[in-house]
């Protein structure tokens, strides 16, 4: 059981600011129920809690500096759109919980931020969705850079059939974005960036890291992206045809598509199936 420490003057003011900064949930409670501050001896009218929450956003932003090596475009875009403080203020409570779980490595920080932004940014908000999609792109690349023990797959087609099981060769990620990150990069690296010139639409990318460590980013059609997402190393071609087309007869055309993806280095066949057929 704990009570409230008897503090006053500057010491109390500092304690309240510090408590609000390290505990965003407590700060939110004070914002909702200012009377709780009065109970510890602070007149709620003397403290700008909203500004304190913004300051917590700045502190959170600085705490995420180790992510910058992976998220250069995202941070640049956040600065240009003036949304850094807003985003990190909103992210602070989630970030605290992740730190308590020990998720502190740069890639874990990127994971946390990327997952949070998926719910923070809605499609109907053009600016937030742009930030989300640039972050999706850089998150995918970060995951590939951070991947260890990447294994290739046998790309030889030794007469696969509907029972053959395709598998990713190395690590393959698929992201659908409302922008082309390359074009965004060109725009925001200009001396005076014109954000209105960023093209919006629908792009699908396959991000690939092979066993040799090489990383590539391919623009693919939406259908190819969907196909790659269905490849899990467990499902056979016939079942994938069933899921995609509701028709196992589509196996031949799928085998042809898998062939192309294998030639691009993205796919192979599960070893036991490759040997067995």
């Amino acid at each position: 059981m704990t009570g409230v420490r008897s503090l006053s003057g500057g010491a109390l003011a500092h304690s309240v600011l510090a408590a609000g900064l390290v505990d965003p949930d407590l700060l939110s409670t004070w914002i909702r129920e200012p009377a709780r501050l009065a109970a510890i001896g602070v007149d709620p009218k003397t403290i700008d809690l909203d500004s304190l929450a913004d300051f917590a956003g700045l502190v959170e932003k600085v705490r995420q500096n180790p992510c910058r090596m992976y998220l250069q475009l995202t941070f640049r875009l956040l600065a240009l759109t003036g949304l850094e403080i807003e985003l990190f203020r909103d992210y602070a409570p989630t970030s605290v919980r992740r730190r308590q779980l020990g998720l502190n490595s740069p890639i874990e920080r990127v994971d946390g931020l990327a997952n949070f932004v998926e719910s923070w940014a809605k499609d109907e908000d053009p600016v937030r969705s742009l930030i989300r999609d640039v972050l999706r792109h850089e998150h995918a690349l970060a995951l590939l850079f951070a991947a260890t023990g990447v294994l290739g797959a046998d790309a030889r087609r030794v007469g696969p059939s509907g029972r053959s099981i395709p598998t990713h060769s190395g690590v393959v990620l698929v992201r659908t974005l409302s922008c082309d990150p390359e074009q965004v990069s060109r725009v925001i690296r200009q001396r005076i960036p014109d954000l209105a010139s960023i093209e919006r639409g629908r792009w699908t990318f396959a991000y690939h890291r092979g066993a040799d460590g090489r990383i590539q980013q391919l623009t693919v059609e939406q259908g190819v992206g969907d196909l790659l997402l269905l490849v899990d190393g467990e499902t056979c071609v016939g079942d994938i045809a069933e899921q995609l087309f509701g028709d196992r007869a589509a196996v031949e055309s799928l085998l042809s598509a898998f062939d192309q993806l294998a030639k691009a280095g993205l796919l192979g066949w599960r070893p036991d199936e490759a040997l067995a057929t």
Partner: peptide, 11 residues
């Protein structure tokens, strides 16, 4: 500036 402060509770 300050970087340390008393806790609000009396643990």
């Amino acid at each position: 500036a300050f970087i340390l402060a008393d806790r609000l509770d009396d643990r």
